[in-house]
C-alpha cells in the first residue's frame, strides 16, 4: 500500500497527486512512468512521473475513464494498492543546445522534470504549453521556472497565443536555431505537431501512450512501430524518434477497448451515485 500525501485539482478534469513510494522516487528520471493499480479489482494504468520530492513522486492526470475518475476521487491520506516503477527508459539527456518542449493538454505534466534535466545538462530550454482553453492550462508557474522561456497557446484564444502549440513551435523555429524538440500530448497532437520539425530534420521526441498491462516487456500490449520495427513502448520507450513513429497504428490500437471502457465508466458512475462514494466494486 502506498499512501497519497497530497491530492488536488489543477484544472478542469485535471488532477495531481503526490504518492509516497521510495523505490520510485529515489530512482525516477525524466521521461519515466509508473504503473498503478488502485485496489484489488483495479486495472493497471501507466502515468508519467512529473515531479519527485524526497520519498514521494507526483502524477498529473486527466479523468477520462473509470480508473482515472476513481483516482481523482481519492484524497490525501488514502492509499493506492500498487505502484510499480519507475518504468521505461529515461529521456535522452545531453547537451543538445536549444531545446523546445511542447505540451498538449495534460501532456504538459511530463515537461517540467524534462526541462529541469535538460537545463542541468547545459541546454537552453523553451517551453510551449498548449491547451484547448485557459481553463485547461496547467503548471504555468512551474514551467516558467523550469524553462528559460514559456509560451502559451489556447485553441480558443482565451489565454496566450490564439492557435495551436504547433504554430508557436513554427514561430520559435523561424526566430532561432532549435536543436531538439519534445512533443508530449494526445497521439493526434503529436502526429500533427512533429510534422513541423520534420522538414528541418530537427531531432524530435514524442512520448507514446499505448495501452499497457505489465509495463515490463512481458505482454506486448504496448507494441508500437518505430522505423518499421515493432518496439515495446514500456521498455524500449516510451520516448521515441517522432519522425519514425507509425501514429496511425498507435491510434488504431488505442481504440481496442472503447466499448468496454464506456461500460466500465458508466457502471462506476452509476455506483458512485447510488452509494455516495462507498465501495463501487460491490
Amino acid at each position: 500500500m502506498y499512501s497519497i500525501e497530497k491530492a488536488g485539482q489543477l484544472a478542469d478534469k485535471v488532477f495531481q497527486m503526490w504518492v509516497k513510494a521510495p523505490h520510485v522516487a529515489h530512482h525516477a528520471q525524466a521521461g519515466q512512468f509508473v504503473i498503478i493499480r488502485i485496489d484489488e479489482k483495479g486495472e493497471r494504468i501507466p502515468l508519467t512521473i512529473s515531479a519527485v520530492d524526497g520519498d514521494s513522486f507526483r502524477v498529473i492526470f486527466m479523468t477520462i475513464g473509470k480508473t482515472t475518475t476513481h483516482l481523482a476521487a481519492l484524497r490525501t491520506g488514502d492509499h493506492i494498492q500498487d505502484v510499480a516503477g519507475p518504468l521505461g527508459k529515461p529521456s535522452e539527456m545531453h547537451r543538445f543546445g536549444t531545446c523546445v518542449l511542447v505540451g498538449g493538454g495534460v501532456g504538459t505534466a511530463s515537461l517540467p522534470i524534462i526541462a529541469r534535466a535538460l537545463k542541468a545538462s547545459g541546454n537552453r530550454v523553451i517551453g510551449i504549453a498548449g491547451a484547448r482553453n485557459a481553463g485547461l492550462l496547467i503548471l504555468e508557474d512551474e514551467m516558467s521556472k523550469a524553462c528559460d522561456e514559456l509560451l502559451i497557446s489556447t485553441d480558443d484564444g482565451t489565454k496566450g497565443f490564439h492557435g495551436f502549440a504547433a504554430d508557436l513551435l513554427k514561430q520559435v523555429m523561424a526566430r532561432e536555431r532549435v536543436d531538439a524538440v519534445w512533443i508530449i500530448g494526445p497521439a493526434m497532437m503529436m502526429k500533427v505537431t512533429c510534422e513541423v520539425t520534420r522538414p528541418a530534420g530537427i531531432k524530435t521526441f514524442v512520448s507514446l501512450n499505448p495501452v499497457m498491462v505489465d509495463g515490463t516487456g512481458m505482454c506486448g500490449s504496448c507494441r508500437v512501430i518505430v522505423d518499421g520495427e515493432t518496439k515495446f513502448a514500456c521498455v524500449d520507450g516510451p520516448e521515441f524518434d517522432a519522425h519514425k513513429v507509425d501514429f496511425n497504428m498507435l491510434m488504431g490500437r488505442l481504440r481496442t477497448y472503447q466499448p468496454e471502457e464506456k461500460e466500465s465508466l458508466e457502471r462506476y458512475n452509476a455506483h458512485i451515485c447510488a452509494c455516495k462514494g462507498g465501495d463501487h466494486h460491490a
Binding site: G220, R255, E260
Partner: peptide, 29 residues
C-alpha cells in the same frame, strides 16, 4: 497489430492475473 491480436502472454495475463473474465466487476477488459 490490429486490435484483437494478442500474444498468449497478454491474453492470459489479462484473464489470470487481472481477472478480465470477470469484467466489469474487475476493471481490466
Amino acid at each position: 497489430n490490429l486490435p484483437g491480436v494478442y500474444s498468449a502472454n497478454e491474453f492470459l495475463t489479462r484473464v489470470n492475473l487481472m481477472h478480465a473474465d470477470r469484467f466489469p466487476v474487475y476493471d481490466t477488459p
